[in-house]
Amino acid sequence: MWLFDEIVKFHITELEGQVNHMKYSYYPGCTLKTKAKELDRYGRLSAAKLGAELEEIENWQCCGAVYPQAEDEIATKLSAVRTLDAAKQKDQELVTLCSACHHVLKRVNDDMKNNEYVRTRANNYLKLDVPYEGETSVIHYLEMLRDRIGFDTLKAAVVNPLKGVKIAAYYGCLLLRPSGVMAFDDPENPTIIEDFIKAIGATPIKYSQRNECCGGYIAMEDKGAAQKRVDVILSSAKNAGADLIITACPLCMYNLDANATESVLPVKYFTELLADALGVKEED
């Protein structure tokens, strides 16, 4: 059932992609301006190298970091709608890097498209010239690489293939679930980051915990709980033979890095490896 939706969505975004081909609206989010500067900087450098222009949304606001699941939450979704509408005004697809921002924007966008209750009330608050009805196509940077630029094109652009590096992809939760709305990849058997790893010349290491939670914000409430999660993930990746683990999420990065107790693995943002492979890392 969700597969069909995905196919439809794929075709729709395919068509939309033709409109404004290599120019995208870009939403960095709070953390990419502070603790996760590398995620942002290497992402931009690499995109430029690949011919994709990321235009940062002007005067963007925090997306709220978590998607408010309660049906009656409207106010907490408004800043996301403003961002979505800004991309609509420029007739551009909206690209995000942070998993959490991506999750919030994609789900709020889905609400604006399919949930009449949220759509009506959000528009009543915002009083836009033209009501926003979910017109913007929200894609993650990885989706841009896969579906717009293409991993073959990426592979051809690689100047420093990361030969022999065994890399474990860490997906976490927010990119994949709920799959009906995120439509990012198969939620139980994703391949996009592994395909990315192959494209930059490294060897992907598949392990069972790649789509299990790192603990997320529980680190603020119960550090022990986060440490338990992280140990399970890292030992699984390590036992599978990984040298390195990569992620797209600053909070996953934090947990995997700061809350590892038993097993330790170097953690990097995927954009850093991308920049390295494309030879744009030193230029900074």
Partner: peptide, 16 residues
């Protein structure tokens, strides 16, 4: 702590 991302604080405040 030094490494704690803004995202964690915003998320926790939103959840709690």
């Amino acid at each position: 702590d030094e490494k704690l991302p803004q995202q964690a604080i915003v998320s926790a405040m939103r959840k709690y």
